[in-house]
Nucleic acid binder design. Sequence first.
DNA 1: GTCAGTATCAACCAAGCGGTTGAAAGCGTC
DNA 2: GACGCTTTCAACCGCTTGGTTGATACTGAC
Lengths: 234, 234
Amino acid sequence: MNDDRPPGRSPRAKTGGAGRVRDPEQTRERILDAARDEFSAKGLSGARVNTIAERAGVNKQLIYYYFDDKERLYGAVLERAYRDIRKQENALDLDALSPEDALRRFIHFNFDYTVKNRYFVALLNDENLHKARHAKVNDRIPALQSTMKRTLARVIRRGLEDGSFRREADPVELYISIASLCYFFLSNRHTLSVIFNVDLLESDRIEARRDHVTEMVLSYLRSVPAAPPGQHKT
Amino acid sequence: MNDDRPPGRSPRAKTGGAGRVRDPEQTRERILDAARDEFSAKGLSGARVNTIAERAGVNKQLIYYYFDDKERLYGAVLERAYRDIRKQENALDLDALSPEDALRRFIHFNFDYTVKNRYFVALLNDENLHKARHAKVNDRIPALQSTMKRTLARVIRRGLEDGSFRREADPVELYISIASLCYFFLSNRHTLSVIFNVDLLESDRIEARRDHVTEMVLSYLRSVPAAPPGQHKT
DNA sequence: GTCAGTATCAACCAAGCGGTTGAAAGCGTC
DNA sequence: GACGCTTTCAACCGCTTGGTTGATACTGAC
């Protein structure tokens, strides 16, 4: 705070008859919604606090009141995004399905989630531009994730046991590949559209892509490896 | 231009004995190099023209002299990046290799290219944030790409003919998947590192990932499809 | 040597922007 | 009704930034 500023503010005109609305919970959520839209459209550096306030329909000072500054607002948006996807992932209940159906369920979830929540893709891209410095100071994010890694490891093991899978995939590598296949076509849809002169989000195309991704992952797990995974060349 | 500005500039002090260096070609390249580094580190919105000038070791006005404005500078960086990768891709000479070796060569090229040229990944991410508005106004970018699509289509066909491949993959989908697998782990390495608590760019890990990507793509092509690709659910 | 154009320079400017300030309205408790 | 705290408001501020300006040095042609 600038403590040495002399008082100098002129008293402002009184408002008209309309009273103010007071609902701090809703105000906070509206700011987060507006911020999510603005940050995903323009990135942290390109987003404008004024625009966020306008989109939220609130006074700009409220953003500083609830979130301290732009960066912390961004961090709050990111955390809420992670919490949402993990909540939905944890609800998948993959252990109740056969290994192959579990994998299908997992892939379809990730694929459909990115298609429905494009903002998430844009936020992650931007967070990587900033070297994940907001995610790094958030304790809740890694904890949310490790359950999914273990779940995936169990699915792989169950598939090896019942013979539907024939290769012992590394769960981290597999997770990254599934995320890659589900994510990249959306994150890079604009440059890919320029290159291939197609609309990647046309609905038939999306469905074909989901099938393609599923086939690619399952055929990898079903096939006998040519060499042990993770073998090191020395 | 502000035509109504009165003359008011004080004559500046003469420089010391050192003369100016004049080499427009080198100056332009140095600006592009500096801009590439600054735009890939901070994005278009976060990058500073002053910083680009400093990194290039030139007067800021030169940026406007050669590139008109910040956006066109960004567009020039992007075009040069695309030109570089296409030039290297076109030098691969995949038609001279067996289908399987051609695919390996293609995958390894894309993988190693992103590992060596991280700026390219960051630039593409940023360009997608801006809906590829710079790439869209550039006529040279799509032309560079269509040769690779055709080359990939030939490789797929040759593989089907000699039996090393068993599925008629769509070349655009395949290209997107290969790019996905080669690109995402780098573009999202910061958030993935937070989530999995690993260093994805550790050299053993990179090599394992390249092998994993190769295996995933080849096993997909080798396997007999469970349903025809591109089948539409009606 | 002059000239015109090119390449480069230091300083400047107007607008935008993140964040702050003094104040008012609302609300629950006493 | 008073009070203290919370929530909200309009206006403001200092700094940053993309871009501009008038000028100078360099260079090749005549």
